[in-house]
Design a protein around this nucleic acid. Sequence first.
DNA 1: CCGGGTCGTTCGCAACTCGCGAACGGAAGA
DNA 2: TCTTCCGTTCGCGAGTTGCGAACGACCCGG
Lengths: 259, 259
Amino acid sequence: MTPNGTEAGSGRTIRAVQISCDVLRALREMDGAGVTELADRLGLSKGTVHGHLNTLHRNEFVVKDGDDYRVSLQFVDFGEHAKENVKVYDVARKETEELAEKSGEFAQFMVEEHGWGVYLHKVNGANAVKTASYVGNRKHLHCTALGKAILSELPRERVDEIVEARGLPRQTENTITDREGLYDELERIRERGIAYDDEEVLQGLRCVAAPLTGYDGTLYGAISVSGPISRMKGERYREEVPEMVQSAANVIEINAAHL
Amino acid sequence: MTPNGTEAGSGRTIRAVQISCDVLRALREMDGAGVTELADRLGLSKGTVHGHLNTLHRNEFVVKDGDDYRVSLQFVDFGEHAKENVKVYDVARKETEELAEKSGEFAQFMVEEHGWGVYLHKVNGANAVKTASYVGNRKHLHCTALGKAILSELPRERVDEIVEARGLPRQTENTITDREGLYDELERIRERGIAYDDEEVLQGLRCVAAPLTGYDGTLYGAISVSGPISRMKGERYREEVPEMVQSAANVIEINAAHL
DNA sequence: CCGGGTCGTTCGCAACTCGCGAACGGAAGA
DNA sequence: TCTTCCGTTCGCGAGTTGCGAACGACCCGG
């Protein structure tokens, strides 16, 4: 059994529950839908879908808006609880805000879950930069500075597991898409203690990230500063910003020690 | 069939899905738990609970941390989607921030769902006041200014339905706990266009709220300003703040018109 | 170093659930 | 008015699922 599940398929799974999960995922992706629409998409009978929606509705996981069903706001409540369960959440959140202020740039905080990188906080500094990601968004780990910082502190077999499960899809022309290249990059990150993203996600955007690790080696996540290439260059990109990120990371790690 | 489901129980429900929902709710309340713990609490066999957790884990709705299971961060993602589905979310969010800045107090935005009041945004003004509620939190509608503002714009039969389903539990000694008293209060709110909470939630805290309605009568939610009784009194409490709230509500309503 | 207790996990079996498909009723459009 | 589309209901039989017992790993105390 893997330590932190990303394994493909094992043990018994309950068909009815699987169907409800499929229904929920479809509702999320479609931004709401009717019974017939869902039944067609999922290859199920209308009666079946209706039964599932009815059960989910009683449990307040979906809302009914006329004849359309949508994912309910109870997910916000559950999500908030999930965030609170992240050990360093409160400290990291506060420190991310400070990092944004100090740098004047865009600061973010990410953790790993199920082999994905999940954004948990994002703060605009004085010079706002728009990004497509939102809090709760799940992204591949290999193609952002934050994700690579996280991967760099995971044991090799876990990295393999994640690559196996999630793949290394190309994001831009700078994306690392082969396993060897990833290993090399992670090694460089471990040496520096800092991960870079040089226009790998978005043209003209650079990002500097540091992993957050406990003294016992546990990995908490990563924090970063992103900004346009016009401001992120030279000594600022190589020294100044990395030091700010590193020192914020240290503060979080120290505060995490007595939790 | 009710227009916006709060009805008790009708139609077929799927037992396996019901069990998984119970498991998720229990996990949320217990902040994570093991198989045996859950089985005892829910009156199910260990094997059954394990099967459900396994299915939920495959679908990434729970995380496994050693032998404990917890609600996953995927709920954050789903929650974000649910928020985006709220029509006035973006406008209301922005206007809530502005309201906090103008008033210097604590501003909030709430919508109704499944007979609950759900906080969707909260902003601290210059003079921060701590409150227990968080974004995504679900509260009874009858015991806050925001909730009463919402109820005041709902048709009477829907109010009855909600009272039937959720009850009128006492929060403080000022809580309205009988149906007649509630009707009277809602009538006063409709006359003024403004709902007050005079230490009904927390001693020393006052709140001023306005409902958000479309021109066709649809109800979007409510926004409010809360502050300590020391600052919320006299003309400021009766005129100044209500006008600020009202005008913010108008901006939202105007922007909502062309959506 | 051993043994009792705990835990998560697996598995076979029987009961009953649940997915199907057809039929119904209402709403909207031609 | 007739057609079509939708959500909803319902009976039936295949097969899913919940149970309980058994297993193996782990921890702790003796």
